[in-house]
Design a protein around this nucleic acid. Structure first.
Lengths: 127, 127
DNA sequence: CATCATAGCGTTCAATTGAACGCCGTCAAG
DNA sequence: CTTGACGGCGTTCAATTGAACGCTATGATG
């Protein structure tokens, strides 16, 4: 197991943009970033390079720019991050996490309904 | 707004023990730590001191030891951490998080049932 | 009382992270 | 063709984090 180092928080922010775009140059990531984020071009470049070094993205030249594309499925990476969080905050119990989300945080009527639907759909499939 | 620096991951692990015990000395935290965690006494001490510096715990002398106790409700801290995670991984949409949890991660029958109960209880209360 | 273990406190140290420079090549416009 | 902008690559830098030392005071034990 190669034990990819986990992506840092800022890196994740960048990675998600690449995922959404399917692949992107530094410039494209920059532009996709929220206006108020105020990151330097070079900084974004650095994060992309780090993500590549960690094995989350691969890059190939296209014209004068590098295009970065995903190496790992988003769901997988998110899963890894969530695992760590679950361990370090909720004893690895998904239910504890749900408890926090449902109780300590105010869910709107809508969110509750949607969550129920998620569950219903789950059980529909699993037969 | 004082802007408490967020607790680091290892710090959280320690903080949770203090929360569970209601208050604890370095030694007590050590003992409460999983056997295989292999942290040095001094290291735990350091983390506790950092948590104090960050305003999550306060300490007072009791005999030859310092007793650390919570300054902030666990739910509050967890909430802050979750907020960050939600922002950096799910666009701040709780539902996206739920989606990941329910779909991408295999929930057991039991967990699904328990989650449903959480939701039912919620609606029961809110009248 | 002398000694030993315990814990506090200040410090250290390497790795990681958040953020950005500077130099250099190349391509496009004057 | 020169010039200037853009981007790559290597580097830097401070703050944070994960982990632990060493010195010292103090309390328990022989």
């Amino acid at each position: 197991m190669s034990k990819r180092p986990a992506p840092a928080k800022s890196e994740l922010e960048i990675a998600r943009i690449v995922w959404k775009l399917g692949g992107a140059t530094v410039r494209q990531v920059m532009d996709a970033l929220p206006e108020d984020r105020g990151l330097d071009f070079k900084t974004v470049q650095t994060y992309l390079r780090r993500l590549e070094a960690k094995g989350y993205l691969k890059t190939h030249r296209e014209g004068r720019s590098n295009v970065y594309r995903p190496m790992v499925r988003p769901g997988k990476v998110i899963g890894e991050v969530m695992d760590e969080l679950l361990k370090s905050l909720f004893d690895g119990q998904v239910l504890s996490l749900f408890q926090h989300l449902v109780n300590d945080r105010g869910l709107s009527e809508l969110e509750v309904r949607q969550l129920r639907e998620l569950l219903d759909r789950l059980e529909g499939e699993s037969r």
